[in-house]
Design a protein around this nucleic acid. Structure first.
Length: 417
DNA sequence: AATGCGGGGAG
DNA sequence: CTCCCAGCATT
């Protein structure tokens, strides 16, 4: 590629950007903290999705110090529904580091910024160029697509080595003193014109020298290996209705500190080998929850099915509604509970569909609970549930953080109760 | 180099 | 349906 084509590209792209750039909330000024928050939220997330989250987040945590001093649960709650929740924890960890080590001022220093939690090659380049106008590359999916097409590069952009190579190219394209605008222009072009499918080449400011298009390959590029399909997991979940002191509430638990959906709340569920038999699933749920909480639950209704696809796992869940039987801490007594028939419409009545053997095991209380909390009988049971379980009402959903999957399920339940 | 990590919009 | 989005951390 000739030097001419590179200079042409940078000059025309920059001029185009000044004309058409969108008025986005994080472009109001160059406050490094605002840029930082926006770039973290924008990781693997569309602009239109981010905007409302960004507005709420900046109103609630307007400065590095506000974020650093906030309770972690509030930060996670503000991220609810946005996905990739470790971003929220890492962002707050970074804010606390900036307060402790740099007095609350984001340092104008590449190594310092790059060392912050959750800040990788792209984000550090974006912060350094946009906030400080430093000539660093900010190569994301947009940039790899745009440059692959313009320079007709056929390297697989799924390979890390390809990104590294494109970073070197991207640096060489940055016009003197215009790193921030140029990098944003590159991404803006990828978002508005040089889109993944059916790029709008006729409106492209650099169409004339686009090698990919001149070769007729604009829709073939960039080359990218397909991702492996998510593995399927069948799960059985249950909404347990409290009674007595916990009437109107449901049983939830908090997920572990690390891993999938870390530290978020959910309704109890478990991995099962197959979905065939409602009675068998009900029995497994009942037995497992008894082991973990001491509660004796009685699944009554197949409430709904729910599917949720993560990038690497595909959950297929059957969700039951249950109440507490005799022998539970909150047990209202079998006679009373037995009269609680279908409170939910559209569901399928299943109690007492249990196999005789499972029902007998249930009636005998499954033996002693494995959990140290001990048996919870109507007379002498402990008042508190073992961690990480808890009873919550609908109002509590305002302060606890749930993945969208469970928000949908709980809303469906509370709406039709 | 591979894998884990959310959720949704567009075609 | 499929693709992929202003990616990063861990192994």
């Amino acid at each position: 590629m000739k030097v001419d084509a590179k200079q042409y590209f940078s000059k025309e792209l920059l001029a185009w950007y000044q004309l058409v750039k969108r008025d986005l909330p994080w472009r109001k000024n160059r406050d490094p903290y605002r840029v930082w928050v926006s770039e973290i939220m924008l990781q693997q997330t569309r602009v239109d999705t981010v905007i409302p989250y960004y507005e709420r987040f900046m109103a609630k945590f307007p400065t590095v110090r506000h974020l650093a001093e906030a309770p972690e649960e509030e930060v996670l709650k503000s991220w609810e529904g946005l996905g990739y929740y470790s971003r929220a924890r890492n962002l707050q960890a970074g804010a606390r580091e900036v307060v402790e080590r740099y007095g609350g001022i984001v340092p104008d220093d590449k190594e310092a910024v790059a060392s912050l939690k959750g800040v990788g090659p792209y984000t550090s380049g974006a912060i350094m160029s946009i906030a400080f106008n430093r000539p660093e590359p900010a190569v994301d999916g947009n940039v790899m697509r745009v440059l692959s097409r313009y320079f007709c590069l056929e390297d697989d952009i799924a390979k890390p080595s390809t990104r590294t190579g494109i970073e070197k190219l991207a640096v060489s394209l940055i016009p003197e003193g215009e790193a921030g605008d140029f990098n944003q222009a590159l991404m803006e072009l990828g978002a508005l014109v040089c889109t993944p499918k059916s790029p709008v080449c006729l409106t492209c400011p650099v169409m004339e020298h686009c090698a990919g298009r001149l070769a007729g390959k604009e829709t073939e590029l960039p080359v990218k290996t397909k991702a492996k399909p998510p593995r399927e997991e069948l799960r059985a979940a249950v909404i347990v209705e409290g009674s007595g002191a916990h009437a109107g509430k449901v049983l939830v638990r908090r997920r572990p500190d690390k891993g999938l959906l870390a530290q978020m709340w959910e309704i109890p569920h478990l991995l099962v080998p197959e979905h065939g038999d409602d009675a068998a699933l009900a029995e497994q749920l009942s037995r497992t929850l008894h082991e973990e909480t001491g509660l004796l639950i009685r699944p009554k209704l197949a409430l709904m099915d729910a599917e949720h696809v993560f990038s690497h796992i595909h959950w297929k869940m059957k969700i039951y509604a249950a109440d507490l039987g005799a022998g539970s801490e909150d047990g209202a007594g079998s006679a009373e509970s037995a009269e609680c028939t279908s409170r939910l419409r559209g569901g399928e009545e299943m109690h007492p569909l249990w196999a005789a053997e499972a029902a007998a095991a249930y009636e005998s209380g499954f033996g002693a609970p494995a959990n140290a909390a001990g048996a919870r009988t109507a007379e002498g049971g402990a008042e508190t549930l073992p961690e990480p379980y808890s009873w919550i009402g609908r109002d509590d959903m305002e302060r606890l953080t749930f993945p969208n999957l469970f928000i949908r399920v709980l809303n469906h339940y509370f709406d039709n109760r």
